[in-house]
């Protein structure tokens, strides 16, 4: 069985907590990566950062908690956790570029075998370009991970030899979590682990000419 988005989010949450037993400063991109917050173990010490100027962001606000002055990067009303802080946009992005965030999880259209990320523009000539904080996050956090399905809607792999969509960042992705497995970007190729509903050989032929390595 392949992993659903909740199982992928749970795998990411597990790895954050394991890699950072004393807690971590983490930014979750808009969309599916926000699910990771629901799977962080109790007492993980993870502090969530939101680009619009807050640390220790709490869960989405219930209907009676909604405050229009308190939203996340996706403009969804959220809540405060004890120890939260607010800061302006320049300070928020200094936290990214300055290497102060431990982990960032982003969605993606494509990731190349050398860790290039394409996630802001689908390349269509009539699309309205919108980048937000994606380029700053992609090059800023110490570990930048991607959460996505391995195949696009046409069944084409999204881990590719070279991105064909416009780039968000160059060589910035360390790890890719997908429904069919988790992939580490390493100098010699891409290491596949935690395969779900597939085999190494199947993945290797699916992703070729990307060089798939065993753990």
């Amino acid at each position: 069985m392949s992993r659903d988005k909740h199982q992928i989010a749970a795998a990411i949450a597990h790895d954050i907590a394991t890699a950072h037993p004393d807690g971590a400063f983490v930014n979750l991109g808009i969309g599916q990566p926000t699910l990771v917050a629901d799977h962080l173990p109790e007492g993980s010490g993870v502090v969530l950062h939101t680009e619009n100027g807050m640390l220790n962001m709490g869960p989405a606000a219930a209907e009676d908690q909604v405050n229009p002055d308190l939203t996340n990067a996706g403009k969804i009303p959220v809540t405060e956790l004890p120890g939260c802080s607010y800061f302006d946009s320049a300070a928020s992005f200094a936290m990214m570029r300055g290497g102060h965030l431990d982990v960032c999880v982003l969605g993606a259209f494509q990731v190349s075998q050398t860790g290039d990320l394409a996630n802001w523009h689908n390349g269509a000539p009539d699309a309205i370009p919108a980048v937000g904080g994606a380029m700053d996050l992609a090059i800023g956090a110490r570990s930048v991970w991607v959460m996505m399905t391995l195949l696009d809607k046409q069944g084409r792999p999204k881990i590719v030899p070279e991105c064909t969509y416009p780039l968000t960042g160059v060589g910035c992705i360390e790890r890719v979590y997908t429904d069919l497995g988790t992939f580490e970007i390493v100098p010699d190729g891409v290491v596949a682990r935690d395969l779900a509903g597939t085999t190494h050989d199947e993945l290797a032929s699916l992703l070729a000419p990307v060089r798939l390595l065993r753990p």
Binding site: S92, P129, G132, M135
Partner: peptide, 15 residues
């Protein structure tokens, strides 16, 4: 007309 600027660069250019 539209000029798209990464959000951190936008903030830092104003700063």
């Amino acid at each position: 007309e539209l000029e798209v600027v990464p959000q951190g660069n936008l903030a830092e250019r104003m700063r």
